[in-house]
Amino acid sequence: MSLKEQLKEEQKVAMRAKDKVRLGAIRMLMAEIKQREVDDRTELNDDDVITILTKMVKQRKDSIAQFEAADRQDLAAKEREELEVLQAFLPTPLTEEELATILDAALESTGAQGMQDMGKVMAALKSQVQGRADMGQISGKIRARLS
């Protein structure tokens, strides 16, 4: 079952359960997916859906930080609930050991020697870790290894 089909099924379950938060988050995600499909005139695959999910999770995290800075706990709590729903659809996160192994393999396969090769390493890693690890953290780890 593709991720889009899974989302449609979860949407139906949330409707039957009258779970407004879950239903709202899934509808928002489905709307974003549909928008991308219409804009690009293509059918999105699971990797594309994970890209959208990752973007939406990052947006929620940023919103939570901003709402807390503005002392708006009510809005931050709503964003946290949506974040939990969205994260449930992401693949399981990589452990530090798995990430280190993948990073070592990418550094070896690209033959990276210095900071000028960082783009090559990031490109090699992106498909393997997308949705499973924060690219910002990975970038920091690559910088540490290459410098």
Rank of each mutant, 00 (worst) to 15 (best):
A76E: 00
G114R: 11
D117C: 01
L125P: 05
V129S: 01
Q66D: 05
A144K: 15
Q113C: 13
R145L: 07
A123S: 10
Q130C: 10
E37A: 05
I50Y: 07
V38D: 13
A17C: 14
S139T: 15
R36T: 08
T110Q: 03
I138S: 00
D46R: 02
D48T: 03
K58G: 10
S147F: 13
L29R: 07
Q6W: 05
K141T: 06
T51E: 08
I33W: 09
E9I: 13
A77F: 11
S63A: 12
A133G: 00
L107T: 00
E9H: 14
F89A: 00
K120H: 02
L86Y: 07
E96N: 01
T51L: 09
E81G: 12
K126P: 11
I102N: 04
Q130L: 06
A70Y: 03
L94H: 03
T54A: 09
I33M: 08
A65V: 00
R72A: 02
L7S: 06
R16F: 15
A112S: 07
T42Y: 13
Q6R: 03
A69I: 07
M28W: 15
E81N: 12
P91Y: 02
R27W: 12
D40Y: 12
G111M: 07
K55H: 11
I26A: 00
M56K: 11
A144L: 13
F67S: 02
T101N: 03
D48N: 06
A70G: 02
R27T: 11
K120D: 05
K78P: 03
G119V: 01
I138F: 01
A144R: 10
T51R: 06
E108G: 04
L99M: 05
R80G: 07
D71L: 12
A124Q: 07
K55G: 15
L107V: 04
Q113H: 12
D47C: 08
R22T: 06
R72L: 01
T51H: 13
T95F: 05
A88M: 06
L75T: 06
V21N: 08
E5H: 04
K20L: 12
E10D: 13
Q6M: 06
L94Y: 04
V121F: 03
M56P: 11
Q59V: 12
T110A: 03
E98Y: 08
M56H: 13
E97L: 02
R72G: 01
Q73A: 01
R80W: 08
V49H: 01
L103Q: 05
I33G: 07
A69F: 10
E79D: 09
K120I: 01
K61F: 06
P93Q: 11
E5I: 02
A123I: 09
S147K: 15
Q137A: 10
R36D: 07
L107N: 03
E9K: 14
P91W: 02
Q130V: 04
Q35N: 10
K78I: 06
I52Y: 08
M115Q: 11
L146Y: 13
I26Q: 00
E82V: 10
K126S: 13
G140S: 12
I142N: 07
M118C: 05
D48V: 04
Q128W: 05
M56I: 12
K34A: 09
E68Y: 06
Q113V: 11
G131W: 02
